[in-house]
Design a protein around this nucleic acid. Structure first.
Lengths: 143, 143
DNA sequence: TCATTTGTAACTATTGTAGTTACAAATGAA
DNA sequence: TTCATTTGTAACTACAATAGTTACAAATGA
């Protein structure tokens, strides 16, 4: 199976930051919710910062915050930040002397491109706000 | 990155069988086109046979054939045969004591389900015949 | 001044996959 | 009937991606 959990963790982190908009959270606090090591969190947050989805401050009372409203963070941006390699991979060296082998890559590229674009479009239909609201629906109300 | 090449190899195999409809091909012949080991090919063909996309015969003059016309083999069936695990994976154990951690999985499931379904739908728009025709377009004509 | 926190390098352990070897069972041709 | 061919599958090795961990310099604010 695919062992890459970074996309799921990234959405988890962003949802947590969205739930506590007035504070900045440390990687240790976030790690406690995700149940992993703070360095794993910082690695993922580093990627999210490259896409300008979060900002950080070092030092005492430092931590992480969203750069914009959760309703303005679409999950396709998170995908772009975290999923570097294609989900559908090519085989490396088909036989160039075979009529099929010599042209299978460009033919597959067309198909894979469209398939991944379809997933991308589907993810653009969700925001961090949507995930947060879904969780608040599942969470029993408290006083 | 995703190192799983089986989906790409499976489409390669099916396209090759489609290109030579009147013969059955051995795993060794197919392996020569894919440029890999025959056992790798047989493993993938075994999965394709479970979905009834190909049939095999053991022994002398045995080999593999498609069970139907290439225009009747949609790439979503190949996906179903080969991609067992979800492309978008969950993180294993978010903190059940955290309001976000305790509900992130069902919230993500909704999103991931739709994203993968979108990819599946895109793949259902292509058949092995489409891939073969694309390759024959790329292949310079011969006499 | 100092505790806190990020940023990052380096390392280990685990897991999934490709590739390989080996061989029993099936099968058809001679 | 014999035998070369081929599938089907188990067992193994090698490699690559990732999660998790340790360590520590640099930044920062109390």
């Amino acid at each position: 199976m695919n062992t890459n959990q970074q996309f799921a963790v990234a959405i988890h982190i962003l949802t947590l930051l969205a739930a506590l908009p007035d504070q900045s959270l440390t990687s240790a606090q976030i790690a406690a919710s995700v149940n992993t090591n703070p360095v794993v969190i910082r690695r993922i947050l580093g990627q999210l910062r490259k896409q300008n989805l979060v900002e950080s401050r070092s030092g005492a009372s430092g931590g992480w915050k969203l750069t914009r409203a959760p309703s303005q963070i679409h999950l396709c941006s998170v995908y772009d930040a975290l999923i570097r390699a294609a989900l559908l991979g090519m085989h490396p060296h088909p036989n160039p002397g075979c009529p099929i082998g010599s042209h299978i890559h460009p033919a597959l590229e067309k198909v894979f491109e469209q398939a991944e674009q379809a997933m991308h479009n589907a993810l653009s239909g969700f925001t961090v706000q949507d995930v947060l609201l879904e969780i608040q629906t599942l969470e029993p109300a408290k006083e």
